[in-house]
Every structure is written in C-alpha cells, then in structure tokens.
Amino acid sequence: MDMAIAALADGVSKVTLTGRLDIQGAEKIDLPFSVLQGSHRKVIVDLAQVSFMASMGIRTIVLSAKSIKSKGGHMVLLKPNPDVEQVLVTSGIDTIIPIFHDLDAAIAAVSA
C-alpha cells in the first residue's frame, strides 16, 4: 500500500492510494493519514488504484473523515473499482463519506 499526496488548486489535496487496503495496508497508512488530518481540510481520496479493501481499511478512512470533519473540513472518495465500491456501499460508508467518479464533482464537493 502506497500513499501519495498532490496539492490541487484552492487548497484541495488529492491523496492517491495504491495497492491492497487490508489489515497490513491500513497499518501502513494509519500514521501518514493522521499527519494529513492535521493540516488538510479539503481532501479527495483517490481509490482507483486500490485493488482490495476490507473492514480495517474502512476504519482508517472513517477515522480520517471524522477527524477532518471535526476541524470543519470535508473528505470524499474518488473512483473506487466496482468490488471496492460494493464493500463501501455494503458498509454504509457511501452515505456518510460521498463517493464520486468524476474529479471535478469531487473538487466541488470538498470546496462546498
């Protein structure tokens, strides 16, 4: 599991995750995600390169979204593959952390 952060216009950050968001993957990004929460308020998490996600990966994402929200920010998810999206929807995560398949729509949502 790799994580890269890109700064887009107007204070929007795009976090690109690559690999398996299983227990080991979640452990690997827990710390960098905590660092990110401290300084970023408009966060798009790009899941296009995430091949697998289980409940511990969801935990990392929900904890980050909670932390960002508590500081007045927004986090959304971008382009999960169909299997990963089904994991998110089954878990009810899509109703609390919006999922987008279009970058412009994701940018508009975190900038609201």
Partner: peptide
Amino acid sequence: PAATVEEAEIGGLGIQLIRK
C-alpha cells in the same frame, strides 16, 4: 447504519461484509 460521519461506529463491519 450511521447517518453522519460523526456518528459512525468503528468496527463490527466484518461479519456484515461476509454475509453480503
């Protein structure tokens, strides 16, 4: 199911995912 990010409970999802 949680209605908002603030209410979301962490954990307990694993069995629900297996069932689905």
